[in-house]
Design a protein around this nucleic acid. Structure first.
Lengths: 90, 90
DNA sequence: TAGGTATTTAGATATTTTTCTAAATAGTTG
DNA sequence: CAACTATTTAGAAAAATATCTAAATACCTA
């Protein structure tokens, strides 16, 4: 919910790449993990941070867990940046 | 230059507040520091990170160092986020 | 229900980050 | 030039982060 949490989530390259992967649609944890050279536990850790930052949304089907982008938070972030750039209230 | 560096710079609350302060115009290091309860050394450290991320630009006059926002990088960031949100190339 | 696959949690460790104090630079001005 | 003010650098310590291995959950299917 807080910008701190969100920017922190985005500050890690693995997490940014996960988000980029999710652009093409939702993906299971295993599928996400197959794109990286790290253990499933580590992927799970990164996903939990993205989830806490509300940047992704999770759903379960059979014994798979799927993640997908949550773009609404991305918009809030853009609004913050836009305000920084252009806002003019003292 | 890299998004990693930029997002990492933005992930700290002190640095975000510094940027917000700089919205109203350029400010000396001492002036910036007066808004926080930390040593000048720590402020200097945060400014160096913002500078490496190219989020601020520095200039010197007499024995003061002034910092001001560099909005062009903010725009790049927004473009990255926008692409994440809306981009549709597989 | 037993065995299998997928994911998360716990505990440990190495690295990075944030902060401080003290010292070093740099520029200013009497 | 000497004393002063502003800022940065160096070194240290505490806290947070990213990663692993091993174990625990959870759910599925034969």
């Amino acid at each position: 919910m807080s910008f701190g949490q969100t920017f922190k989530a985005l500050s890690d390259p693995v997490r940014r790449e996960i988000l980029t992967l999710l652009k093409s649609g939702r993906m299971s944890v295993g599928e996400i993990g197959s794109h990286f050279d790290m253990t499933g536990a580590t992927i799970s850790y990164h996903l939990s941070i993205l989830k806490k930052a509300d940047l992704v949304h999770e759903s379960k089907y059979k014994n798979f867990v799927y993640y997908e982008l949550n773009t609404s938070v991305v918009e809030e972030l853009m609004a913050w940046l836009s305000n920084l750039k252009g806002g003019n209230e003292s």
